[in-house]
């Protein structure tokens, strides 16, 4: 499997041409991961340049979430190389990170959005948004609050600052979770199926927020089952099959003219 290299040609997105030689925000090389005897990732490589939206698609169990979770070490890779913003993660021979400090530092720059939101339920929306800025990144509280208010306005939740997550709809919770990710001013955002826990009528409001983020040039790595959406917002799409990158490329190519039979089959089944 080759590393992602499809960035040589300028990409068209939202009518803006993008230069080809942008810095790498996230790169993983030959990533392997086993759970016990089960080898889940069998040498995955991918690159997301600054400002790119990279989508990962694939069938259930193909290793999409595991790939994403290895990037910020929520899972410990078995082997491989991970480079975040030019900084290579120091790993021991068994894949465990050599320095917890480095991992924490890297995590502080990656805004993760989970399928099941995972907002802290004993904190209000505002408290959720300022938790990491204030207590981890040591931003002055007043500044963090001012920033959080702007973010809440962006995701349309200005009136929910003092509400506890359990009192909001799934769509509102996920928008708050996206605002929480934005509050750390992340270098890149990681989305793991951000809409698949939502009722169908709530999907649109969350995709709308993500679409805006894509349009403003955020670096995003997104696992998704929303093929139409992936085609619309992505610069690059990666199809995982059974722990390997089966095919990748710009969305028009991957969705419009798939080469691999497995991808063709996959696209037929997901519609």
């Amino acid at each position: 499997m080759t590393a992602a290299t499809a960035q040589d040609a300028p990409q068209e997105r939202n009518g803006t041409a993008r230069p080809g030689s942008r810095a790498e925000a996230i790169r993983i090389d030959n990533l392997h991961k086993s759970f016990g005897d089960l080898e889940v990732l069998k040498g995955v490589s991918l690159t997301a340049h600054e400002g790119d939206v990279v989508s990962i698609i694939g069938g259930s169990g193909s290793g999409k979430s595991t790939t994403l979770r290895c990037i910020n070490f929520l899972e410990t890779p078995t082997s491989g190389k991970i480079v975040i913003g030019g900084e290579e993660v120091q790993m021991r021979a068994d894949g465990t990170p050599a320095s917890r400090r480095q991992i924490e530092h890297i995590r502080q720059r990656l805004g993760m959005v989970f399928q099941s939101f995972n907002l802290w339920s004993h904190k209000t929306v505002m408290e959720n948004l300022i938790e990491v800025p204030v207590h981890v990144l040591k931003v002055p509280k007043a500044e963090a609050i001012a920033r959080a208010e702007k973010l809440l306005a962006r995701v349309g939740l200005s009136d929910k600052a003092d509400v506890y997550p359990a009192f909001m709809s799934g769509g509102q919770q996920q928008r708050a979770a996206i605002a929480r990710a934005l509050a750390i001013e992340p270098r890149a955002m990681l989305f793991d199926e951000p809409t698949s826990a939502l009722d169908p009528e709530l999907v649109g409001e969350v995709l709308g927020v993500i679409r805006d983020l894509a349009a403003e040039g955020r670096t995003m790595l997104m696992v998704t089952h929303e093929m139409k959406f992936a085609r619309e917002v992505s610069d690059h799409v990666i199809y995982l099959y059974n722990g390997r990158v089966e095919e990748e490329g710009p969305p028009e190519q991957l969705f419009g003219d798939p080469k691999s039979d497995r991808l063709k089959q996959f696209l037929r089944t997901v519609g």
Binding site: N72, L74, I103, E104, H105, I106, R107, Q108, L110, M112, F114, S116, F117, N118, L119, W120, S121, E131, V132, H135, V136, I184
Partner: peptide, 12 residues
């Protein structure tokens, strides 16, 4: 998931 969110955001 809430503990995992803490880890994902670099909390010790």
């Amino acid at each position: 998931g809430q503990i995992e969110a803490g880890r994902a955001y670099g909390m010790t």
